[in-house]
């Protein structure tokens, strides 16, 4: 009789234990997902592809929540969560690749813009050579010459800033320098055109 009682209680306790802990948390998948997210962030995903990075983080949060929800139950299986976490890893790698691609794109754009600035500066210098000269034998457009020197300095600053700050900010700076260079070139061109027209 005593044995029967012990047997029943043991069976009940074992059943409770089995029901409440029959599946293990997918820790490896969680760690892998974490690594993938950290790699994406280290690549600069939060800066260069913020929407994709936010979606990645959200997917991870969804999986984490789902795991905790399962942990709250007596009968658990983490099959769905494992799949979700694997998806987070895939998504993380994809976001990292997208980030790298965006950075490469920005770098190219920065260099192209700086090359444009170089061409504009060279053109402006050529225009300066054509600019009206005064009695003193030097160009009358010393101020514009100084402006071109400022552009050259700013372009060097942009080149030096590549990699030290966000590539987006560097590209904006490069574009602003290009626009300023263009405005100086236009100013010069106007003077030259006026001069040429008057001489005809």
């Amino acid at each position: 009789m005593k044995n029967k009682l012990l047997l029943s209680l043991s069976a009940f306790a074992i059943a409770m234990l089995v029901f409440s802990g029959c599946a293990k948390v997918p820790q490896v998948e969680i760690d892998n997902a974490n690594v993938a997210i950290q790699a994406a962030q280290a690549a600069g995903a939060d800066i260069y592809v913020p929407e994709a990075y936010a979606a990645l983080q959200d997917s991870f949060n969804v999986a984490n929540q789902s795991i905790e929800a399962k942990k709250s139950k007596l009968f658990k299986s983490y099959k769905k969560e494992k799949a979700q976490l694997v998806n987070v890893v895939t998504l993380g790698n994809d976001v990292k690749l997208k980030t790298e691609a965006r950075i490469a794109e920005l770098k190219t754009e920065i260099q192209n813009t700086l090359a444009e600035v170089g061409t504009i500066v060279a053109d402006s210098k050529a225009l300066i050579a054509k600019a009206p000269r005064g009695k003193e034998g030097t160009t009358a457009l010393m101020a514009i010459k100084a402006d071109i020197a400022t552009i050259e300095t700013s372009a060097s600053e942009v080149q030096a800033a590549v990699g030290t700050e966000s590539f987006i900010a560097t590209l904006d700076k490069a574009k602003a320098v290009r626009d300023q260079a263009n405005s100086i070139k236009t100013e010069l061109q106007t003077v030259i055109d006026k001069y040429t027209a008057k001489r005809k």
């Binding site: 101020a143 100084a146 402006d147 400022t150 552009i151 700013s154 900010a169 904006d172 700076k173 574009k175 602003a176 320098v177 626009d179 300023q180 405005s183």
Partner: peptide
């Protein structure tokens, strides 16, 4: 000249601000 230099630098920042 120095004023023009400042003005030109200010214009570059102005351009950056407009892009942002």
């Amino acid at each position: 000249d120095d004023t023009r230099k400042q003005y030109n630098k200010g214009k570059i920042y102005f351009g950056e601000a407009k892009f942002a």
